[in-house]
């Protein structure tokens, strides 16, 4: 926001839109649910711990779904767990976001073909906002995914649906195909 960086002395008035303030507040205190499933949960813990320190982004895991606004699905969701995940998601208050961390929760990962008891993608049961690839994703990529969530929140406006916000986000982020084309061309030239 830049507001806090500028020196604000007493009795100042800031003029901004309600959306801005709301989004700023939401995105700078994302509280994920402390909810680990499998290997990715260890990387999530490592991200929370000393070296990567998620708390500097205002992200601190909460033990209860009722206090959290972000669900990091960290690991393999199995058939036995699927209904519990849905229930936990339903217990979270709106607005809520879901980050699917790791290949398993994105699509079933290595368990895609023969994993009879593995849910092939958590998006079969709950809507997912951001997918983070990797098996498991490094802490850096998890932080990258969380930044994407923050971008998503920044797009939100009162009276605009999530789908429209997503569309807006898509428009804003650059299309990578053009960059790849350019890189290919320059590679050929050299």
């Amino acid at each position: 926001m830049g507001l806090l960086d500028a020196k604000i002395s007493k009795h100042n008035v800031l003029v901004t839109s309600v959306d801005n303030v709301m989004n700023w507040a939401r995105l700078s205190s994302l509280w994920p649910m402390g909810f680990g499933l499998a290997c990715c949960a260890i990387e999530m813990m490592a991200t929370n711990a000393s070296n990567y320190d998620l708390e500097r982004f205002g992200i601190f895991p909460r033990a209860s779904p009722r206090q959290s606004d972000l669900m990091i699905v960290a690991g393999t969701v199995t058939m036995k767990m699927a209904e519990r995940v849905v229930r936990l998601y339903e217990q979270m208050p709106e607005p809520r976001y879901v980050l699917s961390m790791g290949s398993c929760s994105n699509c079933g990962g290595p368990y895609w073909k023969h994993g009879y008891h593995v849910l092939k993608g958590v998006d079969r049961i709950i809507p997912v906002d951001v997918y983070v690839p990797g098996c498991p994703p490094r802490p850096e990529s998890l932080i990258g995914g969380l930044m994407k969530i923050q971008e998503l929140i920044r797009m939100e406006q009162i009276g605009i649906s999530r789908a429209e916000a997503l569309k807006k986000l898509e428009e804003k982020s650059m299309d990578p195909s053009q960059l790849i084309q350019e890189a290919r061309k320059s590679a050929k030239a050299s």
């Binding site: 058939m79 009879y116 092939k120």
Partner: peptide
């Protein structure tokens, strides 16, 4: 019984699609 050699995975479990 999943580890029997002739096991066929069920199509749905509680309304969730099981196979790929």
């Amino acid at each position: 019984y999943p580890l029997r050699k002739d096991y066929e995975v069920q199509e749905t479990y509680h309304g969730i699609k099981v196979p790929e």
